[in-house]
């Protein structure tokens, strides 16, 4: 829980940094999301006090934008691109394959909290379609048959 204590100190620093700027809420939420991978409820409550805005206002914003999450992330986030270029290159079959391997549907995490599967829209590498991204690493021109190997790399890392 070290990380969390640290963030709470940070939170005040963060608010101080942004306090004088108008329309700062989204940028502060971005910073929080970057640290935790989601926006924890107690952080929102604190933030509401520090910024002196109602909690409802904060939740109104969090829930509107896809980028902000309310649930803690899995260890590895698997994001398959379903933008137009990837869709035409049959990205749907990649999703099916991952769902089959991990026994989860899009938007869900595996029971052991290892993987989370997301479907996203365009990672900006359409020239390499179909594209998927695990955490920060982008995989281009992915073949269905390669997925098992790619995923198992992450499992092995853990062992």
């Amino acid at each position: 829980m070290v990380k969390k204590d640290k963030l709470q100190a940070d939170l005040e620093g963060l608010v101080k940094k942004w306090k004088d700027k108008k329309g700062n809420l989204i940028m502060i939420l971005h910073s929080i999301e970057n640290i935790y991978g989601y926006v924890p409820r107690d952080t929102s409550i604190k933030l509401s006090r520090l910024l002196d805005v109602p909690l409802a206002r904060i939740y109104e914003v969090i829930t509107f934008y896809n980028y902000f999450k309310l649930e803690p992330p899995a260890k590895h986030n698997v994001a398959v691109c379903m933008g137009t270029a990837c869709y035409l290159k049959n990205a749907a079959s990649l999703i099916e394959e991952i769902e089959k391997i991990l026994h989860i549907k899009e938007g869900q995490s595996t029971k052991d909290g290892m993987f989370h599967l997301d479907v996203v829209r365009c990672l900006g590498c359409c020239g390499l379609a179909p594209v998927m991204m695990i955490d920060e690493k982008v995989y281009g021109k992915v073949k269905k048959s390669e997925i098992v190997d790619i995923l198992s790399k992450y499992v092995k890392e853990e062992e």
Partner: peptide, 12 residues
Amino acid sequence: IKVGMSTCGVAA
């Protein structure tokens, strides 16, 4: 020598 280093280059 110049290496193309935008998102898609890095991805590749």
